[in-house]
Design a protein around this nucleic acid. Structure first.
Lengths: 167, 167
DNA sequence: CAATAAATGCAACATAGTTGCGTTTGTTTA
DNA sequence: TAAACAAACGCAACTATGTTGCATTTATTG
């Protein structure tokens, strides 16, 4: 995957970049945020641009309240929820996990479909800080299920304590 | 596993037994509800007895609001939540799934530990009715995870549409 | 630059779950 | 069998997550 021509503008957004630059991660191939939104008939607004930058800057999934907390400009949570739903409907974000602490979303990669879907890899949710990590190496195993059920998605989540919270 | 010497008293509890009697399912070996609660230093009250009977009478996991809905006597939800937490702490119930519609609990079997834990098998959650089914035949596969994470539980949940909702 | 559809913000609401506190009840033990 | 004690209960109030309706603003397109 190619390095993106993105200069983070951080429009009203606090970003803790952590250890590494993750701008190439999980992003639809060769597309800028503007291209991506345009391709789906979405408007490129400061809030939504900032949200997608946030997702690209983190190697773990984010919930609506994570995003509200990271936006400096004090936007309404309704706006954030509607943006998340819209991104999910257009296959820009997908649900990484749903625990008792809300739905966590992550950026879709180029091999994700343009419809709502879940990850093919497992996730780890920390019991202490509730942060969701993508375990990209750990594939969700396929299983045989009785034909009483029409299976459309699978979710494989590990729980425990993350490195940060062990210290 | 042996048939339990249980005459359901249904103390203030509506039970839809479904197709089969499930009183032998998931229950600690040879123990009555009274024995079970006593063994854990819990008091045998009508509400808690009724709750455990409900769990034994269903082949799918139940949430706090499922239980509130099935109790005729109009008990306070706080009581139900506290009972569920207590049962989980004592290893009488465990969390079967946590989706956006609340934590679902299921009865522990004799090979469950006396501490909070999750199932060894996968679950199916219906997108339409939100009912959680235990897929007892589908084992949660073990995976290798980076030692950055201390894994204590694993959750494998399939989503889609159940037989009832397909019709 | 006007038209239009998408996006935003506010108020209000719904559901899941928790905390504090005073009262009731089940069980133990004397 | 009655007192004592801890567990369980019920009420009020509260937090967190997420949704709906509606009026207003804003980005894009022609």
């Amino acid at each position: 995957m190619q390095q993106l021509a993105l200069t983070p503008s951080f429009l009203g957004v606090k970003i803790d970049m952590g250890e590494k630059n993750l701008y190439t991660r999980c992003m639809n191939n060769k597309k800028t945020i503007g291209d991506l939104m345009h391709a789906h008939g979405l408007k490129k607004t400061p809030i939504r641009t900032g949200m997608l930058e946030l997702f690209m800057a983190h190697d773990f999934a984010l919930s609506a309240s994570d995003i509200v907390a990271k936006m400096t400009a004090g936007h309404d949570k309704v706006t954030i929820y509607r943006a998340l739903n819209s991104f999910e409907e257009h296959g820009i974000l997908h649900r990484a996990s749903e625990d008792g602490h809300g739905i966590k979303y992550a950026m879709c990669s180029s091999h994700c479909p343009d419809e709502p879907h879940t990850d093919k890899h497992a996730h780890f949710v920390c019991d202490v800080c509730h942060q969701t990590y993508c375990l990209e190496d750990v594939e969700v195993p396929e299983v045989e299920v009785s034909n009483e059920f029409s299976v459309s998605r699978a979710n494989y989540t590990l729980c425990g304590i993350c490195k940060k919270c062990k210290n």
